[in-house]
Amino acid sequence: MITIGFNSLPIVLLVGTFTGAVSVWQTNYQIEGYVPVRFLGLTTFKAVVIELGPVLTALMLAGRVGASIAAELGTMKVTEQIDALESLAINSVRYLAVPRFFATVFMMPILVIFANMIAILGAWLVAILFLGISTQIFFSEIPHFFHVHDVMSGLLKALFFGGAIALVGCYIGFETRGGAEGVGKATIRSFVLSAVLILVIDYILATMLF
């Protein structure tokens, strides 16, 4: 289980790099002329740790981990392996869902930390290479406006997103019916449902945290 998560690391890092790169470019375009350029690094930093890092990582994991949980449990369901577990007097939820839930919840914040770091790295590279901003100016305002609260709330979101991904994957997996076709549908439904949930939870948490 944990392996699935850490196998996602390359894609998470790739997405992270481009997220940072694009957001610094966009921010630069938007604030040009209104806001002093020394705030560029800070704005990008906040956008990444509060919003982009957690949400984009979660969407990636909804596709990789959530869908794979749904497919795996769905296959076990349609091939009667879940019934077989129960017939051996083993609680299938405890045996299959609980470890997947904790693994996903545990791994989400860690991946988000990686994603945040690489995104900021990407942003910095774009800033110094293409926007002509010095490293010193890029990072100048971050120490003054750095709030632990921002980073923490991003990671808290990550926990909730991880929980949602795992719960949706497990629930849809356990409810799968209809052979291989059913498993295919379960995979898609798991991704769509957890993606929607991630965005909804993001909104709800945003109203509560900020």
């Binding site: 076990m76 091939t79 009667e80 392996q81 077989a84 129960e86 017939s87 051996l88 007097a89 083993i90």
Partner: peptide, 28 residues
């Protein structure tokens, strides 16, 4: 507890495909 009284052979055998034969037999 009551399920301990039962052994079931499923239509599709329902072996746990991530486990070896021994692990399947020993899981209970």
């Amino acid at each position: 507890r009551v399920r301990h009284k039962f052994g079931v052979l499923f239509q599709s055998s329902a072996l746990f495909d991530s486990m070896t034969v021994r692990e399947n037999v020993c899981l209970g």
